[in-house]
């Protein structure tokens, strides 16, 4: 059924036809995400809560010293990222924002991409937005980056000469090897991916896809990845944040 429905589309998915990857998962994997004591992503959220309150860096300040209780202060924040950063004159991801806070406000070294701590903090912050709709601001400042992300999504690349859209717009719901092709809505990041047996960021996932189409992946934090991330979040506008998601 799903396969047939997916096959009939080509081009952009109408807003009402969008499905989170959650809906394409098995019953068991969905149950794992739904139960906070079975969801391994919650271990990272737990750890992130500890990091949020821990003083660090030369400034001797914790995230909580400025931002207070994350349950109130961070509510809805992840739903707005990547967001425009006036200092860098471009959108930054939630990970980059956290690292910006670390280096500027806490005067602590930036955390490495995909490090346990950065993922834990990101998951903890994003968890506070669970259930809230993705709300990306599009204005004159972010429009060029959104356009660049859109161009990347529809651009054929790699030795397989595939565009993101060829799988995720045109053939979602069908199978790629043993896996169902999702629509690529980044609703649950950072996600606990069973294949990774760990939490991972959206950038890790995008780099995975790039390797899959035999393109050279961009470095973590590369502007190309952030632009694509911005476009994907805009494409999923209005859909609910699920962090920490579980994916097969």
């Amino acid at each position: 059924m799903v396969a047939l429905a997916g096959a009939s589309f080509a081009g952009e998915i109408p807003l009402a036809e969008r499905r989170s990857g959650y809906e394409l998962m098995s019953r068991e994997t969905r149950a794992m995400q739904d139960d906070d004591t079975a969801n391994p992503g919650m271990l990272a959220v737990l750890e992130g809560g500890g990091l949020w309150a821990r003083k660090t860096g030369a400034a001797g300040r914790a995230c909580a010293d400025c931002h207070g209780d994350a349950r109130a202060g961070m509510k809805g924040v992840a739903a707005r990222y990547p967001a425009y950063d006036a200092a860098r004159k471009r959108p930054v991801s939630l990970e980059q924002r956290i690292n910006g806070c670390r280096t500027d406000r806490q005067q602590a070294p930036a955390l490495a991409y995909e490090s346990r701590e950065l993922l834990a903090l990101t998951a903890y912050v994003a968890r506070q937005s669970r259930g809230l709709p993705i709300d990306i601001t599009v204005d004159a400042r972010t429009q060029p980056f959104l356009d660049s992300g859109r161009a990347a999504f529809y651009r054929r690349q790699g030795q397989l000469n595939l565009a993101c859209s060829q799988c995720h717009d045109d053939h979602w719901g069908r199978k790629l090897a043993g896996n169902v092709i999702p629509q690529a809505h980044p609703t649950g990041y950072p996600v606990y991916r069973l294949e990774w047996q760990s939490l991972g960021s959206l950038e890790r996932r995008l780099r995975n896809c790039l390797v899959g189409i035999r393109a050279e992946p961009y470095e973590y934090g590369a502007p190309e990845l952030i632009d694509l991330e911005l476009f994907l979040m805009w494409r999923a506008r209005g859909m609910a944040i699920e962090t920490p998601g579980v994916r097969p």
Binding site: T37, A38, P40, L43, E47, Q197
Partner: peptide
Amino acid sequence: KTLISHPM
């Protein structure tokens, strides 16, 4: 139910 963080 118990869940523990460990790389295994």
